[in-house]
Design a binder for these strands. Structure first.
Lengths: 235, 235
DNA sequence: GCGAAACATTGACCTCAATCAATTTTGACC
DNA sequence: GGTCAAAATTGATTGAGGTCAATGTTTCGC
């Protein structure tokens, strides 16, 4: 629970996160209720079902949002990259667990403080609304993937999707990276796609054999034929 | 495209929809840009991929939000009941098709008009934000169902879920109905759960044989053992 | 570098749900 | 009530992906 003291002005997501809605005096109001915090990989920020004490804005790293079923199985229901917002304001229960996949830095707020502040700053709420609408859209896209795609289609579309999100993150402008490192292992890919680790592995190998992707090490993927991969992701 | 002229004051969802945030003069401002519209069952309000010209608040009936895959298959990614909001404000593309399942009445706004009005009425945006956050939560719940549940678990949890939403709709307060009529046929249940129509049918029959539910006619379901059904929905 | 543990891949087999193919039921209309 | 088309059910079979088990690879601590 190390608290860092980074100035908002120097924040890597200053212009993308919801706080971009604020300037000058308003920003320092927000700063007074936030706590900049480092979360090491693997550590959990909030637990499913707990009272929702905090919300947060991600400034570095990647987190996963999960829901667990009765048995041991879990489903990843969302990923949070830098500038994304996690937690549910204006509501007292957290319905998913938030865990750092990589070493992560977040701007944490007591939920109550955040709620009060947000109610007084419509511009902030507006940013949050836009972000939430976008996230809802993404969740629905994800639903079609889970509901109607084959294992091979799931893995193909996942590789494309994650390449885009990682590229956006690393701020290479609109350039989409063709070679990147996954911020998670096979089991987590499986939990994202609603598959088993073995099936993910088999499909990855299959895409590699088809010459669509290259694999090196555990977590590095190279897209060799983006168009072909897009085709594999749809039909 | 029949335009009805119902006063907001008499609106059945006056106190639940986003317009509950407004009163008096503000409400009449909103009324000037809305169009109350009847949509017969089966008709589509907006098409996936189209420019998003309209957003709407549902006042009666049920709509589905769908996404279609490359082949004929479609996935239902959301349902909209009275007081729910459909469409994506502040964004110029609609990413899912909205279709009436039953005869429906909606309060339609030109998206641009709505956007402008909302920006000037933080209370309205706040209501919309809360609603969107709730919908996101629901979508994520739905994702776990799609990703990690067996056919039998899917159907059981679906029956429970829909009984709750229909009960809320019919305004029996907190009473959850044990006998209700589905607003859709088997194919649509299949599209919600990411299954085939045959599998849905078999699972329904199975739940009936286990004495958990009763079926009469095509669309009427009676929950005979809610607790047992909840158990079937989880393990 | 070496060894161990965690992670990933591969193979053999099995199961659940999809597919293909008839019936049967339902409800709308005459 | 009888007729018909649409919808739902039921049955037989297939196949994609899960499960179980063994092997291979990477990474990390020493």
């Amino acid at each position: 629970m190390e608290t860092l003291s980074v100035a908002c002005e120097a924040c890597p997501v200053r212009n993308k996160a919801i706080c971009a809605a604020l300037s000058g005096p308003e920003l320092s109001g927000l700063r007074q209720i936030r706590r900049h915090q480092f979360i090491p990989a693997g550590q959990t920020l909030v637990w499913e079902g707990d009272d929702a004490f905090v919300v947060a804005s991600v400034t570095a790293g990647v987190l996963k949002l999960t829901k667990s079923l009765g048995d041991g199985k879990e489903q990843i229901v969302g990923l949070a990259f830098p500038a994304d917002f996690v937690g549910r304001p204006f509501h007292d229960k957290t319905m998913s667990t938030v865990t750092a996949l990589t070493d992560t830095e977040v701007c944490v707020f007591r939920r109550e403080d955040f709620d009060n502040f947000a109610r007084e700053h419509p511009e902030l709420e507006h940013k949050l609304l836009e972000r939430t609408l976008a996230e809802l859209e993404r969740a629905r896209e994800w639903m079609t993937r889970l509901g109607r795609k084959t294992a091979s289609e799931k893995v193909s579309s996942f590789v494309l999707d994650i390449s885009e999100r990682l590229s956006a993150e690393t701020c290479h402008g609109s350039t989409v990276l063709d070679r990147f490192e996954l911020p998670f292992g096979r089991q987590q890919v499986a939990d994202i796609l609603g598959l088993t680790i073995e099936t993910v592995s088999r499909q990855m190998t299959s895409l590699k054999r088809q010459g669509l992707i290259g694999l090196s090490g555990r977590r590095t993927i190279q897209i060799l034929n983006r168009e072909g991969l897009a085709k594999a992701a749809e039909s």
